[in-house]
Design a protein around this nucleic acid. Sequence first.
DNA 1: TAGATTGTTAATCGATTAACAATC
DNA 2: TAGATTGTTAATCGATTAACAATC
Lengths: 209, 209
Amino acid sequence: MKQGKISEAVIRRLPRYYRHLITLNEQGVERISSGELANIMNLNASQIRQDFNNFDSFGQQGYGYQVKNLIKELGKILALNKTYKMIIIGAGNIGRALTFYDGFRNSGFEVCALFDNDPSLVGCMYRDVPVYHVDLLEEYIAKNNITIGIYAAHSSFAQDLSEKMIKAGVKAIWNFAPVDINSSVPVENVHLVDSLYVLSYKLNNQSGA
Amino acid sequence: MKQGKISEAVIRRLPRYYRHLITLNEQGVERISSGELANIMNLNASQIRQDFNNFDSFGQQGYGYQVKNLIKELGKILALNKTYKMIIIGAGNIGRALTFYDGFRNSGFEVCALFDNDPSLVGCMYRDVPVYHVDLLEEYIAKNNITIGIYAAHSSFAQDLSEKMIKAGVKAIWNFAPVDINSSVPVENVHLVDSLYVLSYKLNNQSGA
DNA sequence: TAGATTGTTAATCGATTAACAATC
DNA sequence: TAGATTGTTAATCGATTAACAATC
């Protein structure tokens, strides 16, 4: 592990490497060269080697990379060997979908509770996950060692409730509201509308993919 | 409109400009300089002017930019003055949430139908949107002039069904499955798991935001 | 050993930032 | 007119790609 300052571009490629390597492993591929991986992922082989060597030398000259080993190492870098307790603010469409989404459940990310201010939702159970009133947010976070706060409610409360989450002990925020949150902890945005607008732009201004 | 080849980085900032300008307009702000906007958005004023001048000269020397005008122009660039008929493949958590999501409904993006192969879902109505069997996909797209296909089903069918959508006439794909789709039309990915993994990385490797 | 492929340094390319003349 | 701020050219910075010695 050398780990200087890693650029945003590199960080964003890491999950993609991970995903493709998982697939390769499932297909029974045991080793792969940067060239082959570059082909599959539509990247440059040099870039792949540069990316990996930001962290460590995972390969072997003349041989390539062992898929299983690379998965293990990338998993460590992405800190997927840990478990994370999460809460969701907003028990609407998105909050509900994320609660039921099993893409990360099995990899150590657990939704422990939802919070809302709508009396018709407070008290509900989404499968085995309870919906509490948002007034209980801070107490719950502190008591239950929640590390990730997911924000899926109305934009207007995003800044205020984010600050409350942070004060209560949350270490990262996953934001689904179409707003930019000011924060002392890392924020990762999923701006659905922005994404659709980009698609709209490309649809109208580009022919190819 | 000059419109040479616009870089991906610029394109991705456009919706964010749009969003912030809408907010400013709602707050009654009538004009803004690149410097003020840079402050608000945490960007560099030069970058903002460069970005806008990729398309046209929207400002006025010594004065700045008229917020309303800028909104109009960015709307045109993003092609938000048009309307788009969309379908969703996958009537599960995500497909359902997107059907009910009203962040884009009011801006001309209409979900017309969902498709699934689960017999317990086919025939359902999600509010006023019907769920059809996926066998009807191509016929429906062709007959109803669908331009955007949203993919929110299992990864394993993503490539095959995308190709079918494109053949049937879809002009862009919004993909929510954790897989990279090969496509002749623009694809915009919302890789939820990738996004969460990036957050996991930052949570463990960076202190600040 | 010869061949392959890495790790790493150097070259290139593109994006961001600075500077400033144009002009409202 | 003087002041402000754009549009645009030039400088800088960082990311991607190429090249190649190291080495398995």
